[in-house]
């Protein structure tokens, strides 16, 4: 390609550029399009705002209080079950002790009691009488105290642990698990 071709290309493309710049749109059409663009922009911005408001924000104080309430309820239920379990355990221990005493009395009757029957034929008359059993089944006063049931149960257990070599312990745990967030499952 020579210089003449280059010059002609330049002349042609200058002419095309001039023609291109003479093309103008109708002003009413342009204003209509621009107003439509503005309208679309406003709509898109309002949609964006809605999206922002739909996004989750920090938890409200009401929800926090509900969590605290759930945690407190769970703890209270756990303490109540522990107290009931302690009382039940204390009663079971005492009943076992009474049964042992009754067996001991039946096999080795006291000297003041009638011995007309053989020891191996121990009849109910050789056992403790009903009033004696009823009296012996009564719980110690420190266990029965309802106000201090937990403390009493713990004291009773400590005494038994220190005095007896073999001792069975039944622990009743709360059946309602509590997670860290305080939600009950």
């Amino acid at each position: 390609m020579n210089d003449a071709d280059d010059n002609l290309n330049k002349t042609i493309e200058d002419s095309l550029r001039q023609a291109h710049q003479q093309v103008q749109y109708r002003p009413e059409w342009a204003s209509r399009v621009l107003s439509q663009i503005s309208s679309e922009l406003e709509q898109s911005r309002s949609v964006d705002g809605t999206l922002v408001t739909l996004q989750p924000v920090s938890p409200s104080p009401k929800r926090s209080w509900s969590k605290v309430t759930a945690m407190a309820t769970g703890l209270a239920a756990g303490l109540l079950l522990a107290a009931v379990g302690s009382v039940f355990l204390a009663r079971s221990m005492n009943r076992k002790e009474l049964d042992d005493a009754a067996n001991s009395v039946a096999n080795n009757p006291p000297s003041g009691l009638p011995t007309d029957t053989a020891p191996q034929d121990a009849s109910p008359s050789n056992a403790l009488t009903e009033p004696q059993l009823a009296k012996s089944e009564e719980l110690p006063s420190d266990v029965v105290e309802s106000d201090d049931s937990v403390t009493a149960g713990a004291g009773y257990l400590a005494t038994k642990l220190s005095s007896e070599a073999e001792f069975e312990i039944y622990v009743v745990l709360p059946t309602m698990p509590i997670n860290i967030a305080g939600n009950t499952k």
Binding site: T11, I12, S15, L16, Q18, A19
Partner: peptide
Amino acid sequence: QHEEVALAV
């Protein structure tokens, strides 16, 4: 120039 433009277009 006007003719040039018209011809080019």
